[in-house]
Amino acid sequence: MDAILLQILNGLDKGSAYALIALGLTLIFGTLGVVNFAHGALFMIGAFCAVSLQRLLSLSFETVDPTRTDFLGNPLKVKTPYIESWFGPETGAAIIDWSVPLAILFSIPIMLLVGFIMERGLIKHFYKRPHADQILVTFGLAIVLQELVKHWFGANPIQTGAPEAFKGSFDFGVLLGFDPNLIIYPYWRMVYFGFAAVIVAAVFAFLQFTTFGMVVRAGMADRETVGLLGINIDKRFTIMFGLAAAVAGLAGVMYAPINSPNYHMGMDFLVLSFVVVVVGGMGSLPGAVLAGFMLGILESFASMNWIKSMIPGIDQIIIYLVAIAILLTRPRGLMGRKGVMED
């Protein structure tokens, strides 16, 4: 029982990341009908927003402290971040410590802008071209973005810590009456799950309860009619693209403390999140979220030791196996609408 609970918890954070990326992918596919292979790169850019902000905040200047000397006897050079000198040492240190949550604010405008530029500059020209062309051009774009990040940040993973307050783990087991240290779960992963839930809820609320969202949903159902009613649906879809980019970016920002960002994390997640989208059903938003969490949890179950000893290697391939099974038996996915992309 405790092991099952632990695996469910372990699956949640990865599942959250899958769900958020797949949600963005589905938004783009559902609105613009574009298969975006560069979506993983957006996730990666988000993570590197967190890295950049942390570096930006820790920019420091050097002063010579005459009262102290280093081991050679020279006066010691002390590095002080500008932030600390502006806001005082304590506030400054706190700001640097909280750089990842702060990066949420920092990354939203950046991701929106990246999304707009991508849509207006490139994707716009590919609406009428076959899906294979869309796959190819966005695949090229993903390579370009990934290589640029590699050029700027290097090939090694960059550790980006969560705030001090969220380090350490929470003992779930005690809460539910199990022995201590059986079910422990890092605080930051709980935060990540909560954050993902909030974002998903926000996106759904936005689509469900605002006029803008209503128009977008109408456009997803029948683009032409909405256009004929005199609504500039293209503009709204562009905004939705920016929004999808922002969702992917935010997923990346918050993921940075869980897994140190490196330049190929986007590609790693991309394949899996496509699989998630397919399992959930092309164009179905609830399907994407559901499948994201489901596959995340399934993956962590499959990496349990006794399952691995029964079927070796199952943890590596379970997601793909599920996807293949779904595609062959129910091509529209778990919650896909009938007739949408079924062949």
Binding site: I135, A323, I324, L327, L328
Partner: peptide, 14 residues
Amino acid sequence: RRSGIYFSILTLAF
């Protein structure tokens, strides 16, 4: 058994 983008994703998965 599938074509178009599903075929691409299936081969990718394999």
